[in-house]
C-alpha cells in the first residue's frame, strides 16, 4: 500500500471517528500511536507520564475529530499538534521539574527512519524548512528546535543557555520572523 493510500485511509478513519465509530479510533491508533508516543516521550522525558498523556491524546481525537479539516491540516500535522499540546499542558501543569534531556540532543533532527506515511507529507515542505532553518544563526535555530521538540519555555531555554530571558526571547522571535520570511519566499 502506498503512502498516499494510507494518508487517505487515515483521513477517512478520522472522519468516521467524528461519527462516533470506535473501530475507526482503533485504526487511527494503530497507524499513529508509535509516532505520537515518540513525540510525547520526547517532550515529557518520562515513560509513565507519556503513556498517560497518550491516552488523553486519543480521547481528545475522539472528542475533536469533527473539527478535523483536511483542507487546513494534514492528518499527521493535526495529530502531532494534539500530542504536543497535551504534552506541553502536562508539563506546565506539573510544578515538579521534569527529566531534563541534554540540550545538545535537541539539535539533532535525524532524517532517517521516517515512515512511508510521513514521507508523503514531507517532500518539499521539510526540505524548505530545513533550508530556512539553516539560514538562521545557529543559536536561533537551535533554540527554535529545542523549544519545539522538548517543550521548553522561554525561561527554561534562557536558563539552560545561560543567557538573560530578554536575549532568549529576542533570538527566538527574530528567528521566527526570519523563518517566516524565508518560508514565504
Amino acid at each position: 500500500m502506498d503512502a498516499e493510500t494510507r494518508r487517505r485511509q487515515l483521513v477517512a478513519a478520522i472522519n468516521r471517528v467524528a461519527g462516533g465509530d470506535r473501530a475507526a479510533l482503533r485504526l487511527v491508533y494503530s497507524g499513529t500511536s508509535a509516532k505520537l508516543f515518540g513525540v510525547c516521550l520526547r517532550i515529557l522525558g518520562d515513560r509513565s507520564e507519556a503513556e498517560d498523556v497518550l491516552q488523553d491524546v486519543y480521547l481528545t481525537v475522539w472528542r475533536k475529530a469533527a473539527s478535523f479539516d483536511e483542507g487546513v491540516a494534514s492528518p499527521i500535522t493535526w495529530l502531532v499538534a494534539i500530542a504536543r499540546n497535551r504534552s506541553i499542558d502536562r508539563l506546565r501543569s506539573s510544578a515538579a521539574s521534569r527529566a531534563h534531556a541534554p540540550l545538545e540532543a535537541a539539535a539533532e533532527v535525524p532524517d532517517a527512519g521516517l515512515s512511508a506515511l510521513e514521507r508523503i507529507e514531507i517532500g518539499e515542505d521539510q526540505a524548505r524548512l530545513k533550508n530556512c532553518l539553516q539560514e538562521l544563526e545557529e543559536r536561533q535555530s537551535a533554540a527554535i528546535r529545542s523549544a519545539f521538540l522538548d517543550g521548553f519555555t522561554y525561561e527554561e531555554l534562557a536558563e539552560r543557555n545561560r543567557v538573560p530571558l530578554g536575549t532568549m526571547k529576542s533570538w527566538i522571535r527574530r528567528g521566527l520572523l526570519k523563518l517566516r520570511a524565508c518560508l514565504e519566499r
Binding site: 500511536s33 497518550l54 527512519g113 515542505d125 521539510q126 521538540l149 523563518l179
Partner: peptide, 22 residues
C-alpha cells in the same frame, strides 16, 4: 505554523507504546 514547524517532529523516532495504553 503547525503545518510549517510541525515538520520538526518528523525526525522524532517512533516508539511503540505498551498495550495498556489502548
Amino acid at each position: 505554523w503547525e503545518a510549517r514547524l510541525g515538520r520538526l517532529a518528523d525526525g522524532v523516532p517512533a516508539v511503540a507504546p505498551p498495550a495498556t495504553v489502548w
